[in-house]
Design a protein around this nucleic acid. Structure first.
Lengths: 92, 92
DNA sequence: TATCTATTTAGATATTTTTCTAAATAGAGT
DNA sequence: ACTCTATTTAGAAAAATATCTAAATAGATA
């Protein structure tokens, strides 16, 4: 997977907001896009970055492509970060 | 502080490695630089990005500038991420 | 004070990222 | 089969990023 892609994906405010929108329901690309003042093409680009980072997954129904959060990558991220804030590296 | 800067700082592999090096001891800019095949100027740039994101802080002694981890930003990061992996948003 | 050492700043360049418009794809309903 | 709708892809332009070399700064020590 790679932390580089994950952190890069999370560094963009649009993408972080998309993740918040998906926190408790899956949404179609169009629905997601309608919350922003950007073209659908741009939203599609951001969704592809999130997907590449493994932060979301997609499924299809009728004409629509639905996106939803993929929790497991967030868990890996927590593990990485807890190296620093946990303080489990004390001597003794 | 801003998550954008924090995540952006973490998206670079050199900067993540610097953070790992600083996990259990403070180090001078020069010591840090000697672990990489890069000019001191480039290392200085990366350190400034980490500092801007609040991930490290610096102190001076003699000719040296020492860098050390700043844990509190990692803790904020954990909070943000736990919105997703914690699953505290269930109905019922 | 002159010089040496550690680090940062400035300016330049190559690469990457974000955004747009226009076109392509793909499936749904008629 | 045709057309409509939703989404993605391609290509281009502007902005941001990572790196270098050379120069500047600033403190330490002789």
């Amino acid at each position: 997977m790679g932390f580089a892609e994950t952190f890069k994906a999370l560094s963009d405010p649009v993408r972080r907001e998309i993740l918040l929108m998906l926190r408790d329901q899956k949404m179609s690309a169009g629905e997601i896009g309608s919350h922003f003042e950007m073209t659908g093409a741009t939203i599609s680009y951001h969704l592809s970055q999130l997907k590449k980072a493994g932060l979301v997954s997609e499924s299809r129904y009728k004409n629509f492509v639905y996106y939803e959060i993929n929790m497991s990558v967030f868990e890996e991220l927590m593990m990485w970060i807890s190296q620093f804030s946990g303080g489990q590296n004390e001597k003794g």
